[in-house]
Nucleic acid binder design. Structure first.
Lengths: 216, 216
DNA sequence: GCTTAGTATGTGAGTGCTCACTCACTTATA
DNA sequence: TATAAGTGAGTGAGCACTCACATACTAAGC
């Protein structure tokens, strides 16, 4: 699997930047990730993290000196490294196709990228949650995401539109429809605890978007 | 405005059920609503509520004896009374039209109901937030919402489909696309703090959904 | 090979503080 | 005079975070 290794590589790079991490610290990060996703950041205590990680509470604080720093350590690589890298990669992949049709584009987006979203679902859920609650984080995310979309997704859309394959709406609106459709379907599948529902529905999503974004 | 009064009436009814509420208690409810929406339930202290409401902390506890009960008092009427009532009302309204076209249906849904969503946005934001975090609440909401959709929205969709106006997809999938498109656009407009963006975009949403849900 | 010293990692009882919540009391209402 | 509404200092619980100490590992000195 090309995309699989791509995702793993991107993660590995993001992790490598943080040098050697001892086993127990990894357990702390893993436990935090799981608990923040399950219960939310504010509803998770450092005692719970220590318990699930199987370490003493002091260990939780050895590397990251506040609970906030722990959250940042989990979200930062996703926001700053992983998403942009994979976005760019996807852009190249699609651009290489000589005759990009709207349907091909959507198919690629929904299988390739949705798989990635699914793989990082816990981080994304935390992100969603904290964005609703914290003004500063929301501002940061929007600030980070805007140029990533503009530089990687928008050129693809322009390309499609020029080929007479895409409706003449502003790029941010089209992105909104794309991202919104994928996210709400993913969200629902995840809230119901059944991830396979989403995969089964991808053909419908492609159909829906294919019609909805067709030129006049 | 017919819908305006309808919304106000529904609220009045929901409020009337809770009998006479003294002024300071209303201030407490209003302050809680605002703060929960701004900062999230877990990040809001009862001291903050008291301060914003301009009352003593003891007053916060006079009627609702826990912070949880305060949350329930805010969300319960929306979930159990207001939404179902207005949903039913909308259903009747649309059903009365002799020749319901897909476009008419969408137009009505997006202006009429989106206005309601916008009016209750703070409650909905809290609802979204807590659904992501609390398993029990999520289960309750889904349990409450399912029959409301099935009894009020699904018949409309069946009606449209029979008239050859709607794609032959399962009702829950079509609802997903409808609700998802509206909610994500509302969410974005609200996160950016610009509510008018949403109204301005309604024609695009109608177009998008009109194409996306057209029969083969 | 063995000891010693130095450093990174791990520990958990302890600390101060903030939180949700209480209650004896005061003030308005009827 | 009785009942309801409001008050705010107070309380115990639980929270994020600390620190003196224990253990594990590495490298140098003999």
């Amino acid at each position: 699997m090309d995309k699989q290794t791509a995702i793993q590589t991107a993660f590995a790079q993001a992790m490598a930047a943080t040098e050697e991490i001892p086993a127990k610290q990894k357990q702390v990060l893993a436990a935090s990730l799981a608990l923040f996703a399950e219960q939310g950041f504010a509803n998770t205590t450092t005692k719970e993290i220590a318990e699930r990680a199987g370490v003493a509470e002091g260990t939780v604080y050895r590397r990251y000196h506040t609970k906030e720093a722990l959250l940042a350590a989990l979200l930062q690589p996703v926001v700053r490294q992983v998403v942009p890298t994979l976005m760019r990669e996807f852009a190249h992949q699609v651009m290489q196709q000589t005759y990009p049709s709207r349907r091909q584009f959507l198919q690629a987006l929904l299988t390739n990228r949705a798989e990635f979203l699914q793989g990082n679902w816990r981080e994304i859920k935390i992100l969603l949650n904290e964005m609703l609650v914290r003004d500063d984080l929301r501002a940061t995310i929007i600030q980070e995401a805007t140029p990533v979309l503009r530089d990687n997704l928008y050129p693809l859309l322009d390309h499609l539109r020029q080929a007479g394959e895409l409706v003449a709406w502003p790029n941010d609106l089209v992105s909104q429809f794309l991202i919104g459709t994928v996210m709400t379907n993913l969200l629902r599948a995840n809230l119901q605890g059944d991830l396979r529902t989403f995969s089964r529905r991808i053909p419908y999503l492609v159909d829906f978007l294919d019609r909805g974004l067709a030129p006049d």
